[in-house]
Design a protein around this nucleic acid. Structure first.
Lengths: 132, 132
DNA sequence: GTTGACCTTGACGCGAACGTAAACCTACAC
DNA sequence: GTGTAGGTTTACGTTCGCGTCAAGGTCAAC
């Protein structure tokens, strides 16, 4: 009943993934649940990481890329030079995310144009809009 | 020398893909180059589609999803009911794109927080910022 | 004690998205 | 002629991201 340590079943319900997926992510070193005997128990850290993993997937990153990026989220008790390095990589990642958002915004704008054009075609053929 | 019809080699240079990729996309009905004898020749339409395909990939869509979405970009000379259907699907796609951008924006904001935190850690350890 | 729910570790399978090698045509350059 | 620089098809190979058995451990409930 420990709310800090979730079983694999609980994880699967909440995040809508299969056990296979979580074990696969562990094998790929994306997650590192603790063990209670044989059983895996997922900590708060694992949950935070899984959330980021699934988000990363939605944005088109591979699991290996995600594994690298996850480290950027844990600027912790390392050597100063190591933290600096991580920080720099973080800046690059941030820039990449912003670039991606900008491209997405452009794509949205272009697509809206296409839709407007489609509206006109429909209007010219005598189709009324739903909102009228 | 026809600027409207590009060879596979030219396509590969400009879009930074391999011939295999273009032939694969043709097999999957994402592209439909015309033929001059045996040779493929890619039209303006193919170029526009390829651009969208590569963009779609960067946003994490599968080729099959992209194939469906490509149709939304060609609201042309179809039946009115067909155009209406396409238009509706287009609206949904637009909403999905916007949702994706919003999620990306949230992710960017969160990540910026992490970076700020990292900055403070560095500052507390006596590391000066590059811009000072 | 046995049933059932939940977990474990292999290990093979599979679709997606190409890579890669083999064998061949074709047209221009020398 | 003989390259050689492009293109072609056919077909098997590879990596990723899991799905899907198979076989078994564990523990509370009946």
């Amino acid at each position: 009943m420990n709310e800090e340590q979730w079983t694999i079943g609980r994880m699967c319900e909440v995040f809508e993934v299969t056990p296979r997926t979580l074990r696969f992510y562990e094998a790929k070193e994306l997650l590192s649940p603790v063990r209670e005997g044989q059983k895996r128990l997922f900590t708060r850290r694992d949950r935070a990481r899984l959330k980021l993993i699934l988000q990363g997937k939605r944005f088109g990153y591979s699991l290996e890329e995600i594994r690298q990026l996850l480290n950027l989220y844990y600027i912790g008790d390392q050597q100063v030079t190591q933290i600096s390095r991580t920080y720099e990589l973080g800046q690059k990642h941030l820039a990449a995310m912003i670039a991606k958002r900008d491209e997405l915004n452009d794509a949205i704008a272009e697509f809206q144009e296409k839709l407007k054009w489609g509206e006109q075609v429909l209007a010219s053929k005598g189709v009324k809009k739903a909102a009228e």
